[in-house]
């Protein structure tokens, strides 16, 4: 348990024109005289309590790992034509590239872009659902604990 003076020492006034010690003394005086309600550190969702932030639950960790694996997938992109045929290989690849440009690229490219956008959107939706599910689970547990404190 810290004294009011120790609590007030956390205040730092960088402006040298102001008397830091006097301001800290004022804060300490108010801390000593005022009676504070409520005890805010122990109110609210568990994940938002001091020292409890950024704690992933086991189920969430699994979901997080799967989500990161999904994100790490190579995005959709066009693959260049290649050929392993000696000497004529570059000519074959160039012909296939040219033919693809004329015959199918104009049709396939917008579909690829549409699919890439859809994939990205799906990731966002999945991510949000997973996070909401975790929060709801925690909230239900907290409310149940409040309703049935003796069973805890």
């Amino acid at each position: 348990m810290r004294t009011p003076k120790e609590e007030a020492a956390a205040i730092h006034i960088p402006n040298p024109a102001l008397d830091e010690a006097a301001i800290r003394a004022k804060v300490a005086e108010m801390l000593a005289t005022r009676r504070y309600l409520p005890d805010v550190a122990h109110i609210g969702p568990e994940k938002l309590r001091p020292g409890n932030t950024a704690v992933a639950q086991p189920t969430t960790e699994t979901l997080n790992r799967l989500m990161i694996e999904l994100m790490a997938q190579e995005p959709l992109h066009e693959k260049p034509f290649t050929s392993t045929v000696p000497i004529l290989g570059p000519v074959i690849a160039a012909f296939r590239t040219a033919w693809n440009g004329l015959s199918t690229r104009w049709y396939v490219l917008p579909i690829m872009q549409q699919q890439a956008r859809l994939n990205q959107q799906m990731l966002l939706v999945l991510n949000e659902l997973a996070q909401r599910q975790e929060l709801d689970t925690q909230r239900i547990a907290e409310l149940e604990a409040q309703l049935h404190p003796k069973e805890k």
Binding site: A10, I11, P16, K26, R34, A41
Partner: peptide
């Protein structure tokens, strides 16, 4: 911030709230 503003180095909610009160109500500070 440089020499401007007021900082709190660790969190006592009450101490920071009282400092906020001074910044709002004490004309000199």
């Amino acid at each position: 911030l440089g020499e401007a503003g007021v900082l709190f180095e660790d969190l006592g909610y009450e101490a920071v709230a009282e400092m906020a009160h001074l910044l709002i109500s004490d004309p000199a500070i």
